[in-house]
Amino acid sequence: MYKESEKIIMLKVAITLRLLLSRNKNYADLNIDKDDLVNSYEKIAANSSADIRKATVTNAFSGTKKSTMVTIILIVESMGFNMEDFGDQYDKITEKDIEEFKEYIIKSKS
């Protein structure tokens, strides 16, 4: 069983990754071909500079399994962000965000 602090970190990572992916989905720069935009788990896995499975990406976004730092960096960079972007977003996650995400996960499982 995960310690509560580890679970909170896993949830914050998942929330942060989802927010960064959401930025890509909402990106409307006319200079980027929509096919080149990394806006799905599959495209993240394919765009990664290493062999990363779609299931590994999905796990990182779910907040239910631990992800290595290497995996997080690969995901963040494949979406076109850097770790500063990740850290800035991670630091903005509130207790309320975590509770809402927990409720979302519970609802999506049922």
Rank of each mutant, 00 (worst) to 15 (best):
L21A: 07
K7Y: 02
S5K: 15
K92H: 08
N59C: 12
S49T: 13
D97W: 02
Y90P: 02
L21H: 07
I9P: 01
I75M: 04
T64R: 10
L17T: 04
K54M: 12
M83W: 02
K43N: 12
G80V: 04
T58H: 09
T68Y: 09
T56L: 04
T64L: 15
T16G: 05
S5M: 08
K66N: 14
K65Q: 12
E77I: 00
M10G: 01
A45I: 07
L30I: 14
N26G: 08
M69P: 07
K102N: 10
K25T: 06
E42S: 14
I9E: 09
I72E: 02
G80H: 02
I98A: 03
D85V: 00
K109T: 09
E4R: 11
D88F: 02
K107G: 01
I105D: 06
S110G: 15
V57P: 09
I75Y: 00
T56Q: 08
K25W: 14
R23K: 14
D33L: 15
S110T: 12
T94D: 05
K43G: 10
Y41K: 13
V13E: 10
I52H: 07
I75S: 02
A60G: 04
V76P: 04
F61T: 05
K34P: 07
R53W: 08
S78N: 07
I15G: 00
D97T: 03
I93Y: 05
L19Y: 08
Y27A: 15
I75D: 03
N39V: 08
S5P: 04
T71Y: 08
R23D: 06
E103L: 09
D85C: 02
M1C: 10
I106D: 09
G63R: 00
S49E: 15
S67Q: 03
E84H: 02
I9T: 07
E99F: 08
K7S: 08
L19D: 11
Y104E: 15
F81R: 01
Y2L: 14
V13C: 04
A46T: 09
G63N: 03
L11R: 01
D97Q: 01
I32R: 06
D91S: 05
T16V: 07
K66V: 11
F101R: 00
